[in-house]
Design a binder for these strands. Structure first.
Lengths: 155, 155
DNA sequence: GGTTAATAGTTTAGTGCTCAACAATTGAGG
DNA sequence: CCTCAATTGTTGAGCACTAAACTATTAACC
């Protein structure tokens, strides 16, 4: 009597199966890319902060939080560590003193500048399981799927 | 001088962009689906254990760990909680006393049986942003991508 | 058979994150 | 003005997870 109980109609089965594959792919990629980060002394979130500042320039903490999809409380925590290691600088903005602008220090810039090319190469290697055309299709479908979630009324 | 620095060649840019979209889609879906779980008093991992036992029948903890992609230590922790709430039972196997078979209790089975149909419906609603044919394409691409990661030599 | 290796599960210390409450600052409306 | 609301960032409690060391049990091998 164990196992293989009723799971719903065809649309639900397809959706469940697709969702699992999406999660497993994202998970496998992330895990593979995380190893070099910890080796470089960075968590994924710390990397996200440095990468954002490196590619987009100085920005305030709430912008960083939105970009890397985490809470402002978590950004405070992560920036505490980065600041403690001298990789990032906090600058209170004078025209609106609620904001704290984050800037890369020379060491922070050097670290992310040295790390990012290898990261980009590893992402490309990992994604090379799909030819470019299929990567574009995957990107389009994921974008369509991701955008739809924010505009959905809660069930 | 801030922002928009060099990011690598075309293949890397495509891979990075696709990876970000994949992560954001998976993240948005997961977040949307997690809310009803916490409302039902379940973490995602707890749900994963119950769902595995519900659909596949009794199994040992290491099998559960492999299936829901977490460590055996975490399974021990999660099962402690589920057992404490009377949702799951631990049964030491007599033919190989290293194994602990996990079984749903009546309450555990009732809980997951009551919860899963809504979950399946929500997954289908969320995935409905893509027509069935595109879901199949997405699933195929994700599967191909996910499988390739495990067979990759570390960079 | 007795040592060695492998496997299942537990434990413990440490980490990263969330959530809610909070303080500080700014803008909007009466 | 002066309150009220909105926004930014911080704090502290609590939680889920990881990683490594450990125990217990079983299988492999000389």
């Amino acid at each position: 009597m164990a196992g293989h109980r009723f799971r719903g109609n065809e649309a639900e089965q397809l959706a469940l199966s697709t969702y699992v594959k999406l999660r497993r792919a994202a998970n496998a990629l992330t895990e593979r890319l995380a190893a070099p980060m910890v080796e470089a002394g960075l968590t994924e979130t710390q990397f996200g902060v440095l990468e954002a500042l490196y590619h987009l320039g100085p920005m305030c903490q709430s912008d960083v939080a939105r970009r890397i999809l985490t809470s402002t409380g978590n950004v405070t925590l992560v920036v505490d560590k980065l600041e403690g290691r001298g990789l990032v600088r906090r600058v209170r903005l004078e025209d609106d003193r609620r904001y704290v602008e984050l800037q890369l220090t020379a060491e922070g810039a050097a670290l992310i500048k040295g790390f990012f090319p290898g990261h980009a190469r590893r992402v490309a290697e990992a994604m090379a399981a799909l030819p470019a055309a299929e990567q574009k299709v995957l990107g389009r479908l994921c974008r369509q799927l991701g955008l739809a979630q924010s505009e959905a009324q809660p069930a």
